[in-house]
Design a protein around this nucleic acid. Structure first.
Lengths: 339, 339
DNA sequence: CTGTTAGCGCGTTCAC
DNA sequence: GTGAACGCGCTAACAG
């Protein structure tokens, strides 16, 4: 198995199928891509030949010749994050059902990495791009518009998408949760976020929080908003810091990831009751939140639907069907025991 | 932006770069793929031209012509599962560093889906395949050996890999944890698994559990081993059922996913102490396990290293370097508060 | 319904 | 160090 990589691997070609079926190459091509255009008898023989010699079409050659491709490029900040991977999963399924392939890259929140990944995808001549980011380098924007690839942005609702946008408003969601906490009677509402630097979505959520505080008519205290690391540990750390500096805090809105759960565990360790000592709210309805004790109030972001709809929109574009530039899929507040 | 898909999109070709730089196409090709073979002056002009007209090489054409490709196909049971996605992430990074691309598909534990995905990848003429499954349809095996693509299996250690294998032994790991529990003094050790049907890894872990029970000299009671759904809910359900039918159970080994955490939450709801009422052990060291109260004993499987090494092995194969057929990366028992 | 001709954009091979 | 001819495996556009 390991050897003989020197010999030129020609592989089974369409020509071999044609010879075996006693037809021309073109007929084989048609039989495979558009069976209706070929007589039943011919079709049968071609299929038999394909089966006999285990022919697998060379899609690259087909793409080159037809100047089309069936590969879609997807760029997310991080593959190893259940929020993104649920979207990946949905997109993957939707594409496969229609005979398309998915290529994935991650940008790690760096615009330069995103540009690199975009270039890579364009070199592969993908037929469409799905980008979680809504910020891009100037060169990335230029390349996309020059090559003119349909592009769907999915990480945040923007008024001026590169091309099209399927998402929800991070601003509105963060504001809504803040107002929700205020209406429940909490007055000192803390906000915990991932690092704002180089993270426009985190920044926008922060703006939403501030807008919520303002709408509630509460005093604006910027020291109630802090940044922390991602993950359970980050949540625990943030809770400790915030309650050390502001013991009067009566609710904390953790605006990312599973930080809220980490904070809850820290409360359990300290024997603090949630929500009587401090209320906890989260962003994104991960499974965990409805299983912990107490269950945690959160925002449900329609991650799967964003995946499905963005794939739909891409397909529609490729078929020339008109589609709205911007699609807002909204969010819901899920009220649970922690608030 | 939306319109004009009728007109033939020619795009910027290497020929355009050549014209602008005042050299031949061949020189451009060399300048891009092997800069040393071109004079410094030429190189500079080519690069300037590339930059000016925003040329992005057509990799498909290059692949077709050179009969090589830089795409790797990866098939996992489920993209939306942090165990797999951590491997995906590592592989993705390792490949990108070497200029390769990653294509992903999921099989959903169905061999037929896996075969479909393999066919799709072979049609794309991927240069290598990484498969989480170690079981495949006959046709899949046939195709892979015929097209002769380097293939790494990573989901379980097998003596007879399709081609090569980088993994750990599910059998040894499950047995080791069972024996570990026995040595701690637990005598009625339950086993909770995902559905065994169509899941060879689950079956192998079950065999490992049985072997552990035997080594400990404990009575073999098959009713102590049950199946359940994945996820937190599945763990909670399993705990309820097992302790209802066998109240004397003093330890439970949850052999997949985050089921152990779901069971722990159920104990919290019932006010049962862990491990004094019942001990809990898990499979795979997900972050969550070390943050819950109490922390949960588990097996550390080197998911990231499996990803990195499998990518390494693929690269080595492509460069003709010899590599072992089977690489066992082992596992560790992480002893924590829950046992 | 089927075949023929002519490329797709690039790398290989060999000349210069 | 550079260029010309040729072909990779397939499909578009026509002709029959």
């Amino acid at each position: 198995m390991q050897g003989n990589r020197k010999s030129v691997k020609t592989g089974v070609r369409m020509q071999d199928v044609a010879a075996r079926a006693g037809v021309s190459v073109m007929t084989v091509s048609r039989a495979l891509s558009d069976p209706d255009k070929v007589s039943e008898e011919t079709l049968k023989r071609v299929r038999a030949a394909v089966d006999d010699i285990r022919y697998v079409p060379n899609e690259m050659a087909g793409n080159l010749s037809s100047r089309r491709s069936k590969a879609v490029g997807l760029i997310v900040p991080n593959i190893n994050n259940s929020l993104y991977s649920s979207t990946i999963q949905t997109i993957s399924t939707a594409l496969r059902e229609r005979g398309f392939h998915l290529m994935i890259a991650d940008s790690g929140l760096s615009l330069e990495n995103e540009e690199l990944a975009i270039t890579g995808f364009l070199a592969q001549r993908v037929c469409g791009l799905i980008l979680h980011n809504t910020q891009h380098t100037a060169r990335a924007r230029e390349l996309i518009s020059q090559i003119d690839v349909p592009t769907i942005e999915i990480g945040n609702l923007t008024e001026e998408p590169l091309d099209q946008c399927v998402s929800y408003s991070n601003f509105a969601a963060a504001k809504a949760m803040t107002v929700h906490l205020g209406r429940l009677g909490y007055r000192r509402i803390g906000f915990v976020s991932l690092a704002l630097r180089n993270n426009d979505r985190a920044q926008i959520r922060y703006q939403g929080y501030l807008a919520g505080i303002e709408e509630l008519g509460l005093p604006q205290d910027l020291s109630l908003a802090i940044e922390t690391e991602s993950g359970l540990q980050g949540g625990a750390d943030a809770l400790k810091r915030l309650l050390a500096s502001h013991p009067e805090t009566d609710a904390i809105f953790f605006a990312a990831d599973v930080m809220a759960v980490g904070a809850l565990f820290e409360c359990q360790r300290r024997g603090w009751k949630v929500p009587s000592r401090v209320a906890i709210a989260s962003f994104d309805d991960v499974d965990l939140l409805r299983h912990v004790v107490p269950t945690i109030t959160t925002l449900r972001i329609p991650r799967e639907e964003i995946g499905r709809r963005s794939a739909d929109m891409l397909m529609a574009r490729l078929e020339g069907r008109a589609m709205p530039k911007v699609m807002d899929l909204g969010f819901d507040i899920i009220h649970r025991e922690s608030t």
